[in-house]
């Protein structure tokens, strides 16, 4: 079975935010909720890198471990999904996630945070595949249609890759070799690179 993962190639990411926009549009995500975000480190300095971050679909997900109501489940493809009907909006998954993937629609004091929303790897949720309830709650289910997540499909530089981990690591390995990268220079070596 496939083990689905995201991989963002920091050398290629140009911070265009197409992945963010595609995700938000495709799943009709409300104001204030952002399943995917692009983070730029060392902005303006030498060595500036950008990364597109959403749920990393961890094999041993901290969110799943900490949830008081146990709403998370992992599909046979390794995609971590959750059941919004059971969610109590406590926010613990947001504290536990190293990447800050869980998002909540409400932010008032004493209020419930609302139902947690996060990247689903475009695989919907526990409702029936491609039903209208699934779309209302979780967004499009592209995996059930045999497609890959839209953020990776839309990435303008193919920095963001999504798919089976073996396939992804193979692609990236070839890129690294083509760049002429070495243990002493992880970046693009313009002398050695076969571009």
């Amino acid at each position: 079975m496939a083990r689905m993962k995201f991989y963002c190639d920091a050398e290629r990411c140009i911070e265009c935010n197409a992945c963010v926009t595609a995700c938000k549009n495709e799943h009709d995500i409300p104001w204030g909720v952002n399943r995917r975000r692009v983070v730029t480190i060392k902005d303006g300095e030498q060595g500036e890198r950008s990364l597109s971050v959403a749920c990393m679909h961890c094999s041993d997900a901290p969110c799943a471990a900490v949830c008081p109501v146990d709403i998370f489940y992992t599909t046979s493809d390794g995609i971590v999904l959750h059941d919004k009907d059971l969610c109590i909006g406590c926010g613990y998954c947001f504290y536990a996630c190293p990447f800050g993937a869980p998002q909540f629609p409400e932010e008032a004091a004493f209020s419930s945070r609302g139902k947690m929303d996060k990247c689903t790897f475009c695989a919907g949720g526990p409702e029936d595949d491609n039903s209208s309830e699934e779309y209302k709650k979780y967004g499009r289910n592209r995996i059930a249609e045999g497609k890959l997540p839209l953020c990776a499909e839309m990435c303008s530089t193919h920095a963001l890759l999504a798919g089976d981990a073996d396939v992804l690591s193979d692609i990236y390995r070839k890129r690294v070799i083509n760049r002429g990268a070495s243990a002493f220079d992880w970046g693009v070596n313009f002398d050695k690179a076969k571009l």
């Binding site: 963010v20 692009v38 902005d43 504290y95 536990a96």
Partner: peptide
């Protein structure tokens, strides 16, 4: 602290190592 066009609480932070530690400690 990185920069992100998405504004929110700690959206510029790529990794929060304390989160998993806290989760395991609690459980």
């Amino acid at each position: 602290d990185g920069i992100s066009q998405v504004k929110g609480v700690e959206t510029g932070v790529l990794i929060n190592v304390r989160g998993d530690q806290w989760a395991r400690f609690r459980i």
